[in-house]
Structures are given as C-alpha cells and as structure tokens.
C-alpha cells in the first residue's frame, strides 16, 4: 500500500507516517486503526485517549483550509473508519463481540439460557408473560399479585449475571495472556476459548433481554403515563 498523496510506502495505519495525510483505508481492523494491541482488557480512558489523539490528526475540519476536495474526502473516510473502530471497541462486551466477528465466529451466535437459570427459565417466562398482559390491560390486581414472585426471580437472574461476569473475566485473562509479549499480533487461543466466548455472548444477550423485561414488568407507572390505559 502506498500513500495516495506522497506515494511513500504505508505502514498499517490511518495516517501516512511521512506526509501526515489521512488514508482512506477500509481494510484495517479496529485495533489496528486505533494503533492498539488486540487486548480485551482496556482502560476506557486509555482507549478514549488513543481515539482523540487520532481524531486530532484526521478529522476533515483540520483539512478544510487545504481547499482540496481530495484531501477532504480522504480525511472524511479516515475519520469514518476511526469512529467505527472506536464505537466497536469502546465497551468490554463490544470488544469481545468484535474479536469473535473478526475471527469469523459471529455467525454461530444464538441466545442461550445460562446454566444457572435452566430450571427456572420457563417459570420466569410464564410469570413475565402474565405480568406483561396485566400491565397492558391495566389489571393492577394481577400485576401486584405477581410482584413478589417476580422479585424473587430477579434475585436469581442477578446471581446468574454475577456468575456471567466472572466467566467473562476468565475469558479476558486467557485471551490477554495469549496476546502477551507480541503486542500487535492476534493471539493463538484454543477452539475451546472461542466456543466458550460464543456461548457466553449468547447467554449475555439472553440475560440482557430478560433484565429489560423484568425492569419493565416491575414498573407500573410507565404504562399509565404513556396513556395506553383508560
């Protein structure tokens, strides 16, 4: 790859090392774009710093005075790539999702009931359905009658969530250890790691969806305010 402006050879980067021009690259991975090792454990402030430093070099506003549409277009594309990369990597779950997608594992993702909830999953669903129906038909009595049950189920879900977090911590440590001392190279991890990570993400999605439903189910006010009841 060569720089579109000064023709010097490009290192894998958003900016040409020689002339400083932004590069309209589309084939760099998100970690490479941000110039960071493909680690899962990042301090949010550190990520933000990398993003902002690069933005200070490739945002189209910085090239407005060049009066050259080519430069502006290159900067716009570089900034798009940077924004995309930062958006994908800025939160821990996004990073895990990205690592799976970038290694061709995202297709296998499906929502999965976590082990700890296998037995109560059906009960949770049934109670939630009852509560949701009561809410939408303004049947406050039925709604109230199920709140205690819902609260106790919520405790179980919260426990499953805690467990899920500890599993994630383990996945992160294993991945980051594999990154080890070759900071810019993608690590070799076992197939088992990928399997576990995919399963974990599936469980996480299940838990997130369930948590949202539970929060709504326990909140009566929202419905009456939205005016969908008499």
């Amino acid at each position: 790859m060569k720089c579109w402006n000064c023709q010097s050879a490009l290192d894998e980067a958003l900016l040409c090392a020689r002339c400083g021009m932004p590069q309209p690259t589309e084939f760099l991975g998100a970690f490479e774009v941000l110039g960071l090792a493909p680690r899962l454990n990042w301090d949010a402030a550190e990520l933000q710093r990398s993003y902002e430093q690069l933005a200070q070099k490739c945002h189209p506003d910085l090239f407005w005075a060049h009066m050259d549409e080519r430069v502006l277009t290159a900067a716009r594309r570089a900034m798009r790539t940077l924004n995309d990369a930062y958006r994908e990597l800025r939160d821990p779950i996004g990073r895990l999702r990205y690592v799976l997608a970038a290694t061709g594992h995202s297709r296998e993702l499906t929502r999965t009931v976590p082990d700890g909830l296998q037995e109560s999953a059906q009960i949770v669903d049934r109670v939630l359905r009852t509560v949701e129906k009561a809410r939408s038909s303004a049947d406050r009595e039925t709604w109230e009658a199920h709140q205690d049950h819902l609260a106790s189920l919520q405790v179980q879900v919260e426990k499953a969530q805690e467990h899920s977090e500890s599993v994630r911590a383990g996945l992160v440590v294993e991945w980051d250890n594999a990154v080890g001392n070759a900071p810019m190279a993608w690590p070799q991890v076992s197939d088992g790691w990928y399997e576990q990570a995919i399963r974990w993400l599936g469980e996480r999605e299940y838990l997130d969806a369930l948590t949202t439903r539970m929060h709504t189910g326990r909140d009566w006010q929202e419905v009456s305010e939205a005016g969908s009841v008499k």
Binding site: A55, Q56, H59, D61, L62, W64, A65
Partner: peptide, 13 residues
C-alpha cells in the same frame, strides 16, 4: 476560525 486554522486548534466532534 477553527476551519481556517486561524489561531485555534480546537477540534469539534
């Protein structure tokens, strides 16, 4: 002023 690089290095996102 920022666009003209006229005494300001502020970047607006």
């Amino acid at each position: 002023r920022i666009l003209n690089r006229d005494g300001s290095d502020l970047l607006v996102l």
